[in-house]
């Protein structure tokens, strides 16, 4: 089973966790293949790790698990899509934020992903976690 190394520890993932990004991510157009890697010690966070470039990885989260009324609606048939939002990790855990303005839509059937910049800027680029 393939694995990625995070801070010296290997985390394996299933082949069906590999996502193809036809257009890459915003600003990273060459990031075409990435694995969505889960690991219980980081849950609810997971890792989106580039398979083309070992150095490139993101911490992501399903935003609907944290913000129950987060309902971006730009992708056709978005009910069948998984949502992942990119997390900006801070060394102060209370300052870690989520990008709700440009989430990633993943089509589970086709294993394809796209990062969409939402039209309404109601959603924050750096949304704080509800901590209390």
């Amino acid at each position: 089973m393939p694995a990625i190394n995070i801070n010296g520890k290997d985390h394996s993932y299933e082949e069906d966790r590999i996502i193809e990004f036809a257009e890459g991510l915003i600003g990273l157009p060459r990031l075409r293949r990435a694995a969505l890697v889960e690991s219980p010690e980081y849950a609810p966070f997971s890792w989106l790790a580039s398979l083309d470039d070992d150095e490139v990885r993101f911490v992501v989260i399903d935003p609907t698990e944290i913000y129950s009324d987060y309902k971006p609606d730009t992708v056709e048939g978005s009910d069948e899509h998984k949502l992942r939002a990119i997390v900006k990790v801070s060394s102060d855990w209370q300052k870690t934020t989520v990008n709700l303005r440009a989430p990633i839509f993943i089509d589970e059937e086709t294993k394809s992903g796209v990062q969409v910049i939402l039209a309404d800027s109601e959603y924050q680029l750096e949304e704080a976690f509800p901590l209390s």
């Binding site: 801070n7 600003g27 966070f45 990119i86 990790v89």
Partner: peptide, 21 residues
């Protein structure tokens, strides 16, 4: 924002991430 978030998650951030999770 993507480039800022791109995770060079060093030990400090790794531990902060685990605390948050």
């Amino acid at each position: 924002a993507n480039l800022a978030a791109e995770a060079v998650v060093d030990e400090l951030k790794d531990s902060a991430l685990k605390d948050l999770s």
